[in-house]
Design a binder for these strands. Structure first.
Lengths: 236, 236
DNA sequence: CTGCGCATATTGTATGATTATATAGACGCA
DNA sequence: TGCGTCTATATAATCATACAATATGCGCAG
């Protein structure tokens, strides 16, 4: 995962406080100690602390006002789609139902994205999709496959010519990646979904939006079934 | 719009630089002057400038490294779904095709959201939807209607029990709101889409996911047609 | 020609002082 | 007694300055 810049001190502070808030250790409405005290508690200077606060404030997690202090904001103000906020949730949640929500997002916009891609895909973008697909075919282990898989899905979304879609993908997929790309697929039949990808690929090539949508939908539905352990063949 | 905190000095600096980057005045790869110089140019202290930089860095717009300086990052690293980034784009773009992209997002996830809502809506959440719908019925001018409309769509998304969906809505809708809620709908037939809303409302009440999806889809398609001026009846 | 180390420029961190701002409580007025 | 205003005060916001860490590139030696 590792989205936030943890190389710097304020990065660490941001993450530390961010996780505390997102995980519920600090709850909405709670007041944080004043800068001077909190800085001392975390063994950093006020400068570093303030820069961290600034970031958390930009993400909607806290609100600071003179005299009244700094308070954790209510969840509805949180930028839930922020890469860091998402990462912090992944790092601190009983995963089950949150993963479910992420998958739900995928189920919604990836098929739609595939359909758009089939309509608008340019030559060079198609080439990237093809490249990714061939890399999936050629993958000899689950790591290679995971990388190619990610590239495939991304290149499809790039072909939609809608950068909002790409951003949403990148955020959701990165969060999901830490779960299923690296865990559930460490198995011998890592490439079981290749036929699905081929269908999507072909549909885009032949510019058939609805076929692309259905193929992508089936792929994700099957992927979910696989994750929840309901697939029949558990090994090759 | 006004998402960013412009009451504070670093808020102004953040916005100033953010707009410059998003609008293309500063392009990816460009190096910014070093902190000391830039701070002087903007007539603020290095502290204030740095806090702004920290935020821009968190949004993926810039990257700072010792010795090498601060550079504008490539667009693919930008957090396109960040409320501020989106707002800055709205403030500085030839609107036409960007609005199209926002509408495209709506077309994808709002119908899906309506379907989910029909499946999962709890009693108190349904009450909020009903409330919003009645407020739309009762609206006597376009301002009242716009508020109720927003509340309706939001309450539907809340009923999905997926806060990622809500966040996406809030971001997209806020950006769109600045265009069509306040402009295109200043007309006598501001409530022309009430029947569509009723269909969605009824479908959710009767727990008919597919009906809810279709109704929402039709509503948005018609809304787009209306925006691009293709609707037949231009007045009551 | 290559690799190692040092000089240097830039961001990163720390500290202290001063200013702006919002809250609450005191004070005065009706 | 009740209300508004005014002031005291706590806190964040801003500023200025000093020092530390770090990456880059150049020079020097092998």
């Amino acid at each position: 995962m590792k989205v936030a810049n943890t190389r710097n001190l304020h990065g660490h502070v941001t993450q530390e406080l961010g996780v505390r808030i997102v995980s519920g250790a600090l709850r909405p409405g709670d007041a944080l100690p004043r800068e001077e005290v909190l800085a001392e508690q975390m063994a950093v200077s006020r400068t570093a602390l303030r820069e961290a606060m600034r970031v958390l404030s930009a993400k909607g997690l806290v609100q600071a006002r003179p005299k009244v202090g700094t308070r954790v904001r209510e969840e509805r103000y949180w930028q839930q789609l922020d890469a860091d906020v998402l990462a912090w949730r992944c790092a601190s949640m009983p995963t089950a139902d949150f993963v479910q929500k992420l998958v739900e997002m995928r189920e919604i916009f990836e098929p739609a994205g595939a359909a758009l891609a089939a309509r608008r895909c340019h030559a060079d973008q198609f080439e990237r999709i093809e490249q990714a697909y061939k890399a999936m075919e050629a993958a000899s282990n689950s790591d290679e496959w995971a990388i190619a898989d990610l590239a495939f899905h991304e290149s499809v979304l790039v072909a939609t010519h809608n950068e909002l879609m790409i951003s949403l993908f990148s955020v959701v997929e990165t969060a999901l990646g830490s779960y299923f790309l690296l865990s559930a697929r460490k198995r011998s039949d890592f490439n079981y979904s290749l036929p699905y990808h081929r269908k999507v690929f072909e549909a885009i090539r032949q510019r058939q939006p609805e076929a692309a949508r259905r193929a992508m939908q089936q792929m994700i539905l099957d992927s979910r079934a696989n994750m929840t352990g309901k697939r029949r063949r558990t090994s090759a």
